Amino acid sequence: MTGLVGVGVIFVMVFGGYLLAGGKMGIILKALPFEFMMIGGAAFGAFLVGNSMSEAKHTMKELGKVFKGPRWKPDDYRDLLCLLFELVRLGRQNPVALEEHIENPPESSIFSNYPRVLGDGEAIAMICDTLRAMSMNYDDPHQVEEVLGKRIEENIHHAMHPSHALQTTADALPALGIVAAVLGVIKTMASIDQPPEVLGKLIGGALVGTFLGVFLAYGIVGPFATRLKAIAEQDAHFYALIQEVLVANLHNHATNICIEVGRQNTPTHIRPSYSALEEALKARKAA
């Protein structure tokens, strides 16, 4: 919602200010389709050249997050902590029973209580792979922490690609706007024998290219890239929480302490409160 409001404010302030200052939209509207074809088309072509097809599709898919926000909400962090609590507790009480859940999460009575977490393959893989390795005596806390850290780092690198691709495109847009403006000047010079009013419209149309390139770079594409980067960084905390709890478990802390370690290492704005988490855990214990 905030993204839509922001885009609306950009257009209203820029074009509203232009009109209030006495500007005429006629020249811009007449030149806009052709200038946008040159600048937007060249930018999209460069984007395709600089990225593989899978990377391009990934970037297009991620654009919706600019308006929807991060995937993981505060309630999801609470549910993840509850899930980890159940798994850690069961693993200590009955390791054999735990294997049934980590070997087939979709059929697990524990995992099925948390459908949003279950729907994320990477989160489930991190949990199950780590618990499975622990059952095979791969239980050195420092080694497991390092392995999970590298896995999270690779996930962040992949999640950051759409932001990097859009930022590269944003950096190129002002120069592409100049290219379109130069072509407009060339067109104007070919009509140098025309009266001033005609030349004025031609020059105005050429300058639309410069305006459009800068406007798209700093008003649309650049902010989109920044927003996607912030979202990728926030969503990474979800996987970091898994690491914190499972490593704390390997240090043989009490189950409640392991969960509290994960809760306190979650950023404030998405961290479930202690009381809310306690209520959720009591409800799961009762169930």
Rank of each mutant, 00 (worst) to 15 (best):
L246R: 05
L173Q: 02
F211P: 03
V179Y: 09
S135H: 13
D235K: 02
Q167K: 15
Y138D: 09
A172C: 00
G209I: 07
M189L: 15
E233V: 13
V179M: 14
G177C: 06
P174F: 08
A159E: 14
E197R: 05
V214R: 08
D235A: 01
F211H: 00
G184V: 08
A181L: 10
G222H: 07
M134G: 02
A165S: 14
F215L: 11
G149F: 08
E153V: 06
L176V: 03
V198S: 12
D193S: 15
T188P: 10
E244R: 12
L207C: 07
D140W: 00
N249E: 13
L202R: 05
G184M: 03
Q234W: 00
H157Y: 12
P196R: 06
L199S: 01
N137P: 06
G200L: 07
P174G: 04
I156W: 12
A240R: 14
G209A: 11
P195D: 09
V221P: 00
A217P: 04
V245R: 09
Q143D: 15
A165P: 01
G222Q: 09
Y218H: 14
P162K: 04
Q194F: 07
S163W: 03
E153L: 11
E153D: 15
F215D: 02
L216W: 06
E244A: 10
Q194S: 14
N137D: 11
A217G: 08
T226V: 10
G184Q: 11
D139V: 12
F238H: 09
V208L: 03
V144S: 10
L228F: 08
P174M: 04
A217E: 00
L241A: 11
E154D: 14
P174T: 05
H161L: 14
K201R: 05
A230T: 11
R227S: 12
Q234C: 06
A230R: 07
T168F: 05
L199N: 07
L241H: 04
N137S: 12
K187R: 13
P223F: 14
L176M: 11
Q194R: 13
P162M: 09
I156A: 04
T168V: 01
G209E: 02
I186T: 05
R227T: 14
A172E: 02
A217K: 06
M160S: 10
V179Q: 10
A180V: 09
L250R: 05
L207W: 01
E154S: 11
L250E: 04
G205V: 03
A180D: 04
L173C: 04
F224G: 01
K229G: 03
L166T: 01
L246N: 01
A236L: 08
T210N: 07
A159K: 11
F224R: 02
E197T: 12
T188I: 04
N249D: 11
L183T: 09
F211S: 05
P141G: 01
G222S: 08
L202H: 00
D235R: 05
L166V: 09
T210W: 05
L166H: 00
P174R: 01
G204I: 03
H161N: 06
V214W: 03
H164M: 06
S135F: 08
K187Q: 13
P162F: 04
N252Y: 14
Q143N: 14
G209H: 02
V185E: 01
T210E: 01
V245A: 05
L202D: 02
M189A: 11
V208Y: 06
V198G: 02
A172T: 13
V247S: 00
A230V: 10
T255A: 07
G219Y: 06
A254T: 08
S163P: 05
E154N: 13
